[in-house]
């Protein structure tokens, strides 16, 4: 595969595995994607599809006691991260690649002030004295629109609401001007109104700083509103990738179609005409990842599946205009009503 100019992050054939009592779990099983400078990429999938593990793998935060990156390559600005030394990796984390997590209620340290938690990141990576780092922490809190930022510096996380804590996480993650921000379900734990504010804030800050964002979510609505390109994951594999408009106009993987049918719709006209479709779930369950899956991981739940799907893993097929899909029956899927 040719190395595109302007890609800040290139993930190739990433395989991350965990040792469990039931055997080796292939949480991420050969995922590849690129992230361009300043781009917003969405990674979508249901719980357990490996999207969070992909994120943690990029930062090499997989707990070494249980998990490991078994194969593949992660290149950040051309530098291979899977073999980088731990000290060099630490200088990268929070500085050039930073991450925000799903649970703002538990992701901040309860016994340290907000100011300390932001400033320590700055001191660590920017080689500035503590006083300057505190000033930077104040600027960042102001930037994420926390009112009365000067006073908030000396407050503890329990004194802040969930939305404010997530703003603090964003302030912390962006305090050293990273090139890549990985946001793992950043709004899932928040109220819907707060969700919109946080997403808006992330996009605005992205415009200001030029940070590329990897947004991990199970929420197609969030993807539609915020990302430029989407990777759909299922059972540790990438099943489809497309620019966001193309994905919503013409989803090509049966799984992606299933996800979209599972979104509640509130069409007023359809409602009035009595034609609002019944919400459809995807039949069956996510496969267990302790056994190698020979064919397409989605085949047992797929209405289009044929004999071949159960035995041969489908390759990624180029459907044109940056749209790729891993499905043997893509022509039949395309021909059917979405």
């Amino acid at each position: 595969m040719s190395v595109a100019v302007g890609n800040i992050l290139e993930v190739r054939n990433l395989q991350t595995q965990f040792n469990t009592l039931d055997g080796v779990v292939r949480a991420v099983d050969g995922v590849s994607f690129d992230l361009a400078r300043g781009e917003t990429l969405g990674i979508v999938g249901e719980s357990g599809c490996g999207k969070s593990v992909t994120a943690l793998s990029i930062l090499r935060l997989i707990p070494p006691e249980t998990g490991r990156i078994a194969a593949g390559s992660i290149k950040f600005e051309g530098e291979e991260l899977t073999t980088l030394g731990e000290e060099a990796m630490k200088r990268l984390r929070g500085h050039r690649i930073s991450m925000i997590f799903q649970e703002p209620m538990t992701s901040l340290n309860p016994v340290l002030t907000v100011g300390t938690q932001i400033a320590e990141n700055v001191v660590r990576h920017m080689a500035v004295p503590w006083r300057a780092a505190r000033e930077r922490a104040f600027e960042m809190l102001d930037l994420v629109r926390i009112a009365d930022a000067r006073r908030r510096l000396d407050e503890y996380p329990h004194q802040l609401s969930g939305g404010m804590r997530q703003r603090v996480m964003i302030a912390m993650a962006l305090s050293c001007d990273p090139q890549v921000l990985i946001a793992d379900e950043p709004t899932t734990a928040l109220d819907v109104t707060i969700q919109a504010q946080i997403l808006q804030l992330m996009l605005e800050l992205k415009e200001k700083t030029g940070t590329a964002i990897v947004l991990i979510t199970h929420d197609l609505g969030v993807v539609a509103e915020t990302t430029e390109r989407v990777v759909v994951m299922y059972a540790g594999r990438k099943v489809e990738e497309a620019p966001v408009e193309a994905l919503f106009d013409e989803p090509l993987h049966p799984y992606t179609r299933g996800l979209m049918r599972a979104i509640p719709r509130l069409d007023v006209e359809a409602d009035a005409a009595g034609t609002r479709p019944r919400l459809q779930e995807i039949p069956g369950l996510v496969p267990r990842l302790t056994q190698p899956i020979p064919g397409c991981a989605f085949a047992p739940r797929c209405g289009f599946a044929t004999g071949r799907c159960a035995v041969d893993p489908p390759p990624l097929i180029d459907a044109g205009a940056g749209h790729t899909v891993a499905c043997w029956e893509v022509e039949r899927v395309r021909a059917s009503a979405p």
Binding site: R91, L92, H95, F101, L108, N109, N121, M172
Partner: peptide
Amino acid sequence: AQDYIRTANAKGLATDRVLLLHALKN
């Protein structure tokens, strides 16, 4: 095993700071 230790590690903090400040104080 707490989330905030993962956060501290995601900031690339030195091991001693993570252990002695972030973890031990809790």
